[in-house]
Design a protein around this nucleic acid. Structure first.
Lengths: 348, 348
DNA sequence: TTGTAAGCGTTATCAT
DNA sequence: ATGATAACGCTTACAA
């Protein structure tokens, strides 16, 4: 690997001049520019960024800590991060914690995890990344970031307990509200819901969105129409009947898995989804588009979450140590209309 | 950010000593070790790796170029790469080409793509990565890597036209053979296949696997039982009838999408999958496990491909410039047995 | 327009 | 056991 010194030597100029033509700085005659460029070409020279970074005290790189690459939401978040970073010419140092593979399902109770995160952050700092994005595998409270980080950190797809660390998350409320609005616009008034676990923040927010939509639509909220499930297919299956008996013309399942379960039950019963009854899901998982009929659902703003997280980092890098922005950023969901919702005639 | 110099000053020792205690080299008294460590702790010092890397001329990092993060096979491949790299303490510089988002479906005919790859590689070289893994979004010939790369390059999930660049790909032949073997073990003798596009390498290899399994099972190969599709659901749907008419008791679809299509048709016909007839897919897409019944299919060795690619890079780094290994590495698929295959009694 | 030289934060050699 | 110091490859005053 040739260095700038060798380029200088064979070009018969000083290293300063070579540096200048590379970076388009200073005044250097067209003549020498040409020869230097030719030599660079011939020797297949590539400048050494680690030397440059050392000198410049900047790396234009950020660290991305992904809890687990293989969970369904990761790729789009990472995609959003990379899109923003590419635009601003920032590089990404990726570390994949592989939490699920390593610790099964209860890694977050584990102190090994906390220590590992600290180790990883130290290494990233050592590599002189200018900021860090921590990407949670599922939306929950992230409390493993050490105190007093000397560089901007944001957590994507998770909440934080420290005000100095912004987080960017799904706007469940808007999503649910818009989804139920759509149902109402289609003429449905008796809308049952198969919710997630009662204590989940998603469940709470999506329920609130449901209530708002109902209120705006002038529909009485009947708590008897909301059943709590476990987010799994089975829950959708077993709760369908009671909603049917209550005379619901539409069922709002708080995720696509549970919608799959109500599909199962409805099929058994010979009830036609999308004509006899409407069902909607949430999350827009891959399976949603393969349902029969394809499921109308709410798309998670995964890409936007990643993009926004990058933006926050880059902004923080600009106005170094200036006022902190608000802590939680809610990204809007996007309605994915497919074929599982029928219009219902005006009954009045 | 404190430097080693400041640590030295407040510890009342030289930088050399500090460096030594950090790296556990040279002889230094327990006494000074302790004080230096304390100062490091107090000042929250982290060594600057870019300086270290410059000095050491090594970065322990490799570049990973992903054609598109959001295609289904990427995450597992990346996961494999990171697992291997973490084990060997190598860092990953990730670049996401976002090919699909940028160029729709025919990016690979586009010269902008080639130029972009060259630019990306230059940047990675500048960052002093020690090797590069190019991860294709779909298995095909990758010919965008420049000639005479001065560092190890391997392409994961794609073929190469240069002998010096190893590639690691799916062992379609083994996969199909094992899958059809399983069918035969279950007593099936009349096995139809809904293949992919005729010119596809996957189709060719999987067909060969099918033929081998048949041969080993003493079953005559009937070319009339293989129908070529377009890899999509529709293909599975429309080819099912002729296989049925030919009296097949099992249908081998060359991907899960097409299997979904034959599921559709079989359902219409009221034929029970997993008892009246067997169907198997290939790829183990997310949807496969949600089928009714869950689809028996062949899992792609995505993780292994990533892992192997890393191994090849790291090996090449060891025996710098020694003899090249073979060029194409085939990773075995893994059979995923679910509920879409019935056993069939011995008819003799 | 071009060259000299200091310095970025480390490690390593060689004295002491 | 510890300390001076050169060197890694680059940028940037400043000098010529």
């Amino acid at each position: 690997m040739p260095t700038i010194k060798e380029i200088a030597k064979v070009s018969n100029v000083s290293v300063a001049t070579v540096s200048n033509v590379i970076n388009g700085k200073g005044r250097v005659s067209e003549e020498t520019k040409r020869t230097v460029r030719k030599v660079i070409e011939e020797l297949n020279y590539t400048p050494n960024y680690v030397a440059k970074n050392l000198k410049m005290k900047s790396t234009r790189s950020i660290g991305v800590i992904a809890e687990d690459m293989t969970v369904f939401d990761m790729p789009d978040i990472i995609d959003g991060i990379t899109e923003c970073c590419e635009k601003e010419d920032y590089q990404i140092l990726l570390v994949n914690l592989r939490l699920y593979k390593k610790y099964e399902d209860r890694y977050y109770r584990d102190n090994r995890h906390r220590e590992e995160v600290h180790r990883v952050i130290d290494k990233l700092r050592a590599k002189q990344v200018e900021g860090i994005i921590y990407v949670s595998a599922h939306e929950r409270l992230i409390d493993v970031i050490p105190e007093g980080m000397p560089l901007p950190v944001v957590v994507a797809y998770g909440f934080t307990n420290k005000v100095e660390i912004p987080s960017v998350v799904v706007n469940d409320l808007q999503g649910a509200e818009e989804l139920v609005n759509y149902l109402i616009d289609c003429g449905h008034k008796n809308i049952g819901v198969i919710a997630g676990k009662k204590e989940s923040v998603h469940t709470q927010s999506r329920l609130e969105g449901y209530q708002r939509a109902l209120f705006a639509g002038g529909i009485l909220y009947d708590p008897g129409l909301v059943l709590y499930g476990e987010w799994d297919r089975e829950s959708g299956y077993k709760h369908t009947d009671v909603l049917l008996n209550a005379g619901c013309t539409a069922i709002f399942c708080m995720n696509d898995f549970m919608a799959g379960g109500t599909y199962d039950r409805l099929n058994e019963l010979g009830i036609q989804i999308g004509s006899d009854i409407a069902v909607v899901g949430f999350d827009n998982r891959e399976m949603a588009s393969y349902g029969k009929p394809p499921l109308t659902t709410m798309g998670l703003p995964l890409h936007d979450i990643g993009y926004k997280a990058s933006e926050l980092i880059l902004e923080a890098l600009q106005k170094k140590g200036q006022e902190k922005a608000e802590s939680a950023h809610y990204m809007d969901c996007r309605l994915i209309i497919r074929e599982s919702v029928n219009k219902v005639g005006e009954p009045e």
